[in-house]
Amino acid sequence: MIPSAIKELDSALNKVRSEMINQMNKAGAKIGGGETKVLTTEARLASTARNTIASKGHKPAPLSHYKHKDGWPDLAKKKNDSATNDVLKYYVIASFSQKANIEAKLYKPGARVGWKRIIDQKKPYKSGAYWADKMPINGTAWRFDYAVKSDWSKNGIFVALDRIPTIAELEKLNIVVPKNWQGLKVWEGQVAEQLDLEKMQGSGLLLAGGEKQLYIDFGHPDNQPIRQYIENMVKIQKTNWNDAILPKKLEDTVAYLAAREKAQKTVQQGQVARGVSATGRANTKHEQSKAN
């Protein structure tokens, strides 16, 4: 069975190619052999790619969607004051979907969690802020369901936190634990959608999001013991995914689709040839049986 994320990508890429060819034909471009005159601008390519995957409604949460809880890291303080709008300004809050609440959760010492963090092997930050509550089934699902822009991560490796260590386990590792420590303080919600485009670099496809997201501020005093534990004790593992990389540029999306279409036609022609061959052999045997 083909995972739904792969089906969506397959359908989306077909739409992108069809629409782009249509645009170029209208502009008088010649598609196929010989010189190809591509008159479509990057802006039009971006518009086309952006609309090929339907939004699931996971728009970025506004500041008003966030309800702070005393004792937890304040997400409203995670901001870029030079940003031109609230989505860019309150970037952590905006990474959550407005379709679900952003909830404060406490995970006590000894609690089993099974969390995963997918990492770019060139930037192996084990104790980063964003985590998933399960391992994505493949790279395509990770890229689209967790809305990870190509510019943010190429994946390759991951870390797993299976349980929250106890105070005794932390102290045995010489990790300082705050007095009256109750556990790890986490913010949870659903992933907001993202457009896979940064400074006109990226596939231009909509990454629909919607999966569960955990945000852990390891700079918070109550979370620092777990940060040290992850850095010292959690091992890096390989994802072994080969389906997480999208085209790097908008125009590369077209080339990618063209190559994919050619490969599909080759497979189809082979299937037809085998079918004709099998039919020919069957007819020959039938004629021979009639002659006998």
Results as ranks from 00 to 15, higher is better:
S82K: 10
R260T: 06
K199F: 04
V272S: 12
W152C: 11
F144Y: 09
I118K: 06
E42W: 14
V38C: 08
I157K: 01
Q121Y: 14
N240Q: 15
V159E: 02
S11K: 01
D10Q: 13
R50L: 05
W241G: 04
F96W: 06
I2S: 11
I157Q: 09
G33Y: 13
L63H: 06
H58E: 04
P73L: 13
S277G: 15
I230P: 03
V113M: 03
W152A: 15
V148K: 08
S95G: 01
K179L: 09
P136W: 01
S97V: 06
G71S: 06
A104K: 00
P178Q: 00
N240C: 05
V16F: 04
V186P: 10
L195E: 06
D81C: 05
M200D: 15
R281A: 13
G210S: 00
K179G: 14
K262A: 14
A263I: 00
A132M: 09
K149M: 11
E251A: 13
G128I: 08
N101K: 13
N283E: 14
K126S: 03
M135R: 04
T41W: 06
Y90N: 09
A160K: 13
E287W: 11
V87Y: 10
V176I: 14
A141T: 06
T279R: 11
I21P: 08
K262H: 11
L250M: 02
A54E: 09
H286N: 14
A76W: 15
N101Y: 03
G139I: 07
T253L: 13
K249D: 14
